[in-house]
Write a protein that binds this DNA or RNA. Structure first.
Lengths: 199, 199
DNA sequence: CCCGCAGGCTACTCGCCGGTAGACTTTCAA
DNA sequence: TTGAAAGTCTACCGGCGAGTAGCCTGCGGG
């Protein structure tokens, strides 16, 4: 009970911080702004976080972990390389779109992270690229894909999806599931798998 | 002569600003830092730029203009849709890689631009997406491409290339021309054009 | 009923940095 | 040789915002 309330307060702070950092940028947002939005005052935030940069790290890291988990789960699962790649892209796209503000903040404000936090996240990102290009390589070896440079293709795929943080808006033309599905089609085609255009 | 020297000084300020903004971020860089790097003092910068945000706009806008020009030139040129798309992607990729720090700064520091400058750049970006998806649509109409959602494909292509600002490093495995060429192959494949894998 | 304490607030400090006023120096023209 | 103007520097201001010290209040236990 005690802990749940504590966790809830923490969550609320993070929520509001995400909203404001996303809209105004990290340096464009003051702790007083966040506190005001919550109806409290600045020292309240300090009872839950060491400071502004820790807040930033707490917003970014779990989201990057979710991105890695999405592709790692797909790669570790069963199925043909084509199925695995589709799962990986669909899962990753969903993370990006569901946590779009967090992703946007991370890419924009990376430079403001504490060196230690940045290093931890960089490990996750390298692992992400590694898993994704490994997945492509397996598909090539199995004869399912046709890619001459799997590393570059992994970066291209990662970029094509990550980029969605710049243009996706909830309530837009396509919802999250539809976007993820179409992104997966584009990805499979880029990997050299023939996908018939839906009638 | 007078003007050339003036333009040169301006250029040098911009050069150093790009370097520092890229490494430390916009708010993480002071005008004193830039001046020190140039071996001058802060007021010197004010004889060439109105202030820090104008410096930022001067770094970003021409680069976005170059990106638009690359795809617009390709679209306006002659050739089959496939050739046009290849030219567009090769040209755009080269701009991104040659002006990588500027692109990185723009995407990271967009929020720090003056509203007027941001609006001008947004016009260019909309035009960019419009030209690119038009190019894809023409290819579909001509039967050269096979894409069911040209708008989404244009965003995916734009992202896949733009993203290179996050991973490209001069002197890495692939040089600019090689990267641009391979990106174009991936793009054409995504557009549904069959490209044989080089032997 | 009173005590103690936890959780939050009021009210500060302090360093940083964008921007500026005005002095100084160098150059060139008359 | 001198006057003026262009170009740059020294020295400052003022605001802003992260972080903190210490007070206040309401609630649960004795």
């Amino acid at each position: 009970m005690r802990d749940e309330i504590l966790a809830y307060k923490r969550e609320r702070i993070l929520e509001e911080a995400v909203k404001l950092f996303y809209e105004r940028g990290f340096t464009g947002t003051t702790l007083d702004d966040i506190a005001a939005e919550l109806g409290v005052t600045k020292p309240f935030i300090y009872t839950h976080f060491r400071g502004k940069v820790e807040l930033l790290a707490a917003l970014c890291k779990p989201t990057i972990e979710m991105s890695l988990a999405a592709v790692a789960d797909a790669a570790a699962g069963t199925g043909t390389p084509t199925e695995k790649l589709r799962h990986a892209i669909v899962g990753f796209t969903k993370v990006v779109l569901q946590r779009q503000p967090n992703i946007a903040i991370y890419f924009r404000e990376e430079k403001n992270l504490a060196p230690a936090a940045l290093a931890e996240i960089n490990v996750l990102r390298r692992e992400f690229d590694h898993v994704l290009s490994g997945l492509l390589r397996d598909g090539v070896v199995a004869g399912a894909f046709e890619i001459d440079d799997q590393s570059l293709a992994a970066l291209a795929l990662g970029g094509m999806i990550s980029w969605a943080y710049t243009w996706y808006r909830p309530g837009g033309r396509l919802d999250i599931d539809a976007t993820a599905d179409r992104m997966a089609n584009l990805a499979l085609r880029m990997a050299g798998v023939r996908i018939p255009v839906p009638a």
